[in-house]
Design a binder for these strands. Structure first.
Lengths: 222, 222
DNA sequence: TTTCGATAAATTATAGATAATTCTGTCGAC
DNA sequence: GTCGACAGAATTATCTATAATTTATCGAAA
C-alpha cells in the first residue's frame, strides 16, 4: 500500500506517529520524547527530529523550542475551522476535476460509498469516506491543493476517532449518492453545492470521558 | 521584527533560505547541499536537515531520498493553482473576519494600500500588498487557515519576483479600494466577490531570459 | 504555603565516522 | 561523434558520542 521500501527512516517514523495520533492512541497534549521514540524504532534522534518537523507541518504536533514536541490539542473551534477549509478547497478541487470525471471514476466512487455504508466500525468507514473524496477530487490534477486537502482529511479523521472511539452506527450516505447523481447528469453546480454543505456538516455525540462524566464531542462526518 | 533570539538554529536557517528562494536569489531546481549550507551558517548538518523539512512543508523545496533537496520549480499551472487556492481561502477568511472588522483596522488596511500604490520597486509593493491582505483577514481568528494563506502568499511572492525581477511600474490598486469601500458600507458579499476575483487576477509580462531571448512570465498580482 | 535552590532530565546542537547512493568525467567501442 | 561502462569523487542518510543549555522536579527553608 504505502511504500516503506524507498522511504527514508524519518518519513517512516513520521507516518507511524501520524497514524497513532490520528487513531487517538496518543493523547492530545502528551509529549513526544525523541529519545524514547528513537529507541523504539531502533534509530537515532536525528531522523526522529526530522519526523517531528513533518508532523508539525501537518498540524498533528506542536513544537516549542527547548520544551519539546507535543501532540496537538484541538477543540470545537478547530473542528469547525478544518470543516470550513475542507468545504472551500474540496469545492474548488471538484470544480476542476468535474470535466475529467469519467463513468469509471464515478463507479469507483460509488463503490467507496457503498463500502462506507456497510462499515461496522468507524475506522473502515473513515477509510471508505476518504477514498470517496479522493476519487472524485484527484482528477483536478492540482498537487498542492490535493496535498492540503489530505492534511485536512487527516485532521478530520482525528476528530472523528476522538468522538466515535468505539461505537459506530451504520448509515447510508445520502450526500455522496446525491453528489454522484448530480455529476452523472452533468449538473456540476448542484454537486458543488451538495459537497460544500456535506463537508461542513458536523456530527455531535455525547461521549463518556475517562472520569465517567459525559461531554459533547464533535467531528466532521463527511 | 522576526524574533531570532528564541528561535532554534533550524528555524533561523529555514527563514533565511526561504527568503532567498522567494527573492529568487537561488535558481529553481538548484541543489541545496547540506554541508555547504551548514558551513555557511557555522552549524552542523542536523539543524540544516530540519530546515530542509520546513522548506519542504512550505512548498519551497522538494526532497528526493538520497538525491538531496532542490529549490522547487514552478510553472504557469502552479501559479494558477496557488491563485485559486488563495481566492478560495481568502474569501473564506474574509467572510469570518468581516464581523470583527473595525474602522481602525480598515484604516490600517487603507494605509497599506496607499503604501503599495507609492511603491517604486516590486519588493516594497509586495510587502504592502501582503500587509493589506493580512490586516483584513487576521480578525477571522482561524490560525490554521491563516498559516495556510501565509504559505500561499510566500509562493505568490516568489512568482511575482521571478516575473518582475527588476522593472516595476507604479499603479493604484482599485480592487483594494473597492474591497475597503464595500466593507465600510457593510456590503460583505460585494467585498468577497471582489476579493475572489482580485486574487485570481494573473499578471503577464514579457521577460528577458539570461540567454537573451524573451518569454512570457506570469504572476499573481494581488 | 510559597519560594528558593540543587539536582535530574530532556532538548538542541556539535563532531566525526560509515555505508550506500548518486554524480561526474574519462575511456574505449561502435 | 555518440554511447555506454567504469572508477573516483561527492553527497546523503545515518549512527555514536558528547557538550551546552533549558526546563522540570523536589525537598528544604522562610
Amino acid at each position: 500500500m504505502t511504500q516503506t521500501k524507498d522511504d527514508t527512516i524519518a518519513v517512516r517514523i513520521s507516518k507511524v506517529l501520524a497514524d497513532r495520533i490520528i487513531a487517538g492512541e496518543i493523547e492530545p497534549g502528551s509529549r513526544l520524547r525523541q529519545d524514547h521514540i528513537a529507541s523504539e524504532f531502533g534509530a537515532s534522534h536525528v531522523p526522529v527530529r526530522e519526523a517531528f518537523r513533518r508532523l508539525e507541518a501537518q498540524g498533528l504536533a506542536i513544537s516549542e523550542p527547548r520544551r519539546g514536541v507535543r501532540v496537538a490539542a484541538f477543540d470545537l473551534a478547530e473542528v469547525r475551522e478544518v470543516a470550513e477549509m475542507r468545504a472551500s478547497l474540496e469545492v474548488l478541487a471538484l470544480r476542476h476535476a468535474a470535466p475529467h470525471l469519467t463513468k469509471a471514476i464515478l463507479d469507483l466512487a460509488e463503490d467507496a460509498t457503498r463500502a462506507g455504508d456497510k462499515s461496522r466500525d468507524v475506522h473502515s468507514w473513515e477509510e471508505a469516506n476518504r477514498t470517496f473524496h479522493r476519487t472524485i477530487l484527484a482528477p483536478c490534477a492540482m498537487p498542492r491543493l490535493l496535498a492540503t486537502i489530505d492534511d485536512l482529511h487527516a485532521a478530520s479523521a482525528r476528530f472523528l476517532f476522538a468522538a466515535w472511539r468505539t461505537e459506530w452506527e451504520t448509515r447510508t450516505d445520502m450526500d455522496h449518492l446525491a453528489i454522484l447523481a448530480a455529476l452523472r447528469q452533468g449538473n456540476v453546480d448542484a454537486a458543488l453545492t451538495t459537497l460544500g454543505r456535506h463537508v461542513q456538516w458536523i456530527g455531535q455525540k455525547p461521549v463518556r470521558t475517562a472520569a465517567g462524566t459525559t461531554r459533547e464531542a464533535f467531528a466532521i462526518v463527511g
